[in-house]
Amino acid sequence: MSSTETSTGDTPAHEPSPHAPQGAGSQRHLVQPLRVAADGVHHASGAERVAGMEPPPQARVSHMQRHLGWMGKPLYYATLIFGAAMMVVPFLWMFSTSLKVESDVFQFPPEWLPDPARPENYPDALTIAPFARYLANSAFVTITDTVFSLTVCAMAGYAFARFHFRFRNTIFIAVLATMMVPVHVELIPQFILMRGLGWIDTFQALIVPSIFWPFGIFLLRQFFMTVPKELEDAARMDGAGHLRILFGLMVPLSLPAMAALGIFKFMFTWNSLIAPLIFLTSREKFTVTLGLATFQGQYETQWALLMAATVVALVPIITVFLIGQRYFIQGVALSGLKR
């Protein structure tokens, strides 16, 4: 039958969105009998046409859809595969170039398979610039930032969600208001601040300002507000203090939100260019994005080497993504639905 019917069974089941875990199953049950029904109508319509009767409107629709479904499906796949190729080709091309001898790079029309292959581009790139160091720096900055940021957001989100105190709403709105201020607007004063603190060319300069994340506070507050009050009461009766309620109950129950935030933070900090560009001066402190940008400044046209360096910079984050993709995708979906 037509495409829409099969779709209902498949799509939701693949990705149990955190909000509608039961929806998928029940929809599937609903759909099966419907499909049978539609089929029945179709056969009946054939019989009616033989008998010289006008087929009922439903039959016409289902017939048309059947037609479109046959036409549509391959078209969909063709579009998707073409799109997917557009997504992958630049990566493959980069990888291919990274294995070429520098002189082979300049061939037109381009060749896909490096011949001869020169894997030495990788050790070369890694020795010319300390990419291992850059990666370690990025890892340190990103992980520290993510962990502290989630902690701070959870604490503030909990306070805003569950405590009553004077000026609570005013303070909360003030925090929200900072969400509207683009990071770039704050760059110069932040630079001056860091200079005043003596934090220029330190990791603190990258980590500390980034920890305080209004969106994170906002999202966690929204999530914490949905945790039933009785659960908190139960934990209190069981002897849990506020911090234990926060980290032993609220946080585990808001895991989808925590994961989403953590992933956003991770991606954002890992990929950030402007903060390292402004705050870091010595090469051994560079993060991998800044290191790569600087590297390209020096080896602008040595494409094989440059592509090798880019691959090196991309491999860790892509690996993290492939391992945790479920959370990445859930996180993004969540951020769209939650506002």
Binding site: E230, D233, M237, G239, P252
Partner: peptide
């Protein structure tokens, strides 16, 4: 404090820790 009163409570919604 609730934790120190040595009383236990059963809630209407049961309030079992889902995790």
């Amino acid at each position: 404090d609730a934790a120190q009163r040595d009383v236990a409570m059963v809630f209407q919604s049961y309030a079992l820790y889902p995790h």
